[in-house]
Amino acid sequence: MLLIDSPSQNAYFNIASEEYLLKHFPTEDIFLLYVNAPSIIVGKFQNTLAEINLDYVNEKNIKVVRRMSGGGTVYHDSGNLNFSFHTLLGQHDFMDFSIFTQPVLTLLNAHGVPAVLQGRNDLLVDGKKFSGNAKLARHGKMIQHGTILLNSEMEVLGEALKVNPLKFIDKAIKSNRSRVTNLIDYLPKDTTTNELKQWLTEEIIKNNPTAQRYEFTEEDLDGIEKLMTEKYETWDWNFGFSPNYNFKKAIKIPAGFIEVHLDVVHGIIEKTKIFGDFFASKPIELLEEQLIGQKHEIINLEHILSSLNLTEFFGKVTLEEILEGFK
């Protein structure tokens, strides 16, 4: 087994590294640890916009990254440790999450934390979740990865994942918002993610005495960064890959009531309908036509709408007011 401690706290890099390792280490067992700066990691089959508080995420410069595995959306920051096991497919029951969560439970139980695996893939303490886990199978290998909330900023987590469930109608997998907790409430108050990382590594070595530490080579770093740039940093992957959805939002501004309806396919607006009690000197259909074929991305829509005389369609309004209807 190769033990890898990621040198980066960039979520784009660390999520890309999992795919890179999958392709370039086809037979090796791997145990990867990483900590991300504030970021939201979205399940592969989720509608990103329906999982995040976009305004808050943009305001706080929180990265949004889609991972390869299914499951729900999670928040990462420096108070959260992430672990990732890579093994040959077929060595273990794919639906059994207990094998690779057991080292976490063992070390926590040894430190007096009454942690347990509950349900299919969650680790809980006193009925509250501190670790969510997900899996994927590809190229003859399996990855099981999970989070460990040690001392994460719960207020930021709550705000970043606070969404309006009425805005989206789709068949995408929705996250189950469980009650979550930090392990720092059960461990010595000065415990750090680095200490937790060391404990978990020691536990893995205890069960895998031939395990060897591995550091990314220059070739590895170049490969991961290439994958990061071409895929994991892109709007197409993180937002455009989302399942098809219908978006609806109503806003009340000084010019009147406005209700926006969008049919979005792979992140691209296919149909638009705007209703309201505003007064327009030009048919609203002319504006609707401008939005067809555009990305449902605020930066892009801001560019489109800023090129139009919005008062002709809505009366006395600002660009910022109209953009609210598309968020």
Rank of each mutant, 00 (worst) to 15 (best):
residue 192 T to Q: 04
residue 191 T to V: 14
residue 94 F to H: 15
residue 265 V to C: 10
residue 154 M to A: 02
residue 20 Y to Q: 00
residue 98 S to Y: 06
residue 131 S to L: 05
residue 136 L to K: 12
residue 154 M to D: 03
residue 22 L to T: 07
residue 67 R to P: 05
residue 231 K to I: 13
residue 99 I to Y: 14
residue 296 H to V: 05
residue 31 F to M: 03
residue 263 D to F: 01
residue 60 K to N: 14
residue 113 V to D: 11
residue 74 V to F: 07
residue 105 L to N: 02
residue 8 S to R: 08
residue 253 I to S: 04
residue 145 H to Q: 10
residue 93 D to I: 13
residue 177 R to L: 05
residue 49 L to V: 06
residue 130 F to S: 10
residue 162 K to A: 13
residue 108 L to W: 08
residue 170 D to I: 01
residue 156 V to F: 07
residue 286 L to M: 14
residue 20 Y to L: 01
residue 279 F to I: 15
residue 67 R to H: 05
residue 106 T to P: 00
residue 141 K to L: 02
residue 74 V to Y: 09
residue 169 I to L: 12
residue 136 L to A: 01
residue 244 N to P: 13
residue 156 V to N: 12
residue 3 L to D: 04
residue 107 L to V: 11
residue 278 F to A: 07
residue 113 V to H: 09
residue 318 T to Y: 04
residue 97 F to P: 08
residue 51 E to R: 07
residue 240 G to F: 12
residue 81 L to P: 08
residue 115 A to E: 03
residue 193 T to N: 03
residue 212 Q to F: 00
residue 50 A to C: 00
residue 227 L to M: 11
residue 18 E to Q: 13
residue 72 G to I: 03
residue 66 R to I: 07
residue 136 L to P: 00
residue 258 I to K: 04
residue 107 L to S: 02
residue 192 T to W: 10
residue 115 A to P: 04
residue 255 A to V: 10
residue 201 T to S: 02
residue 223 G to A: 13
residue 265 V to A: 10
residue 117 L to G: 02
residue 145 H to D: 09
residue 73 T to G: 11
residue 61 N to K: 14
residue 224 I to H: 09
residue 262 L to M: 12
residue 185 D to Y: 01
residue 106 T to I: 04
residue 193 T to Y: 01
residue 196 L to C: 13
residue 183 L to Q: 01
residue 29 D to Q: 14
residue 68 M to K: 11
residue 269 I to S: 06
residue 161 L to M: 07
residue 192 T to Y: 07
residue 278 F to D: 06
residue 68 M to T: 02
residue 103 P to L: 09
residue 171 K to F: 06
residue 323 L to Y: 09
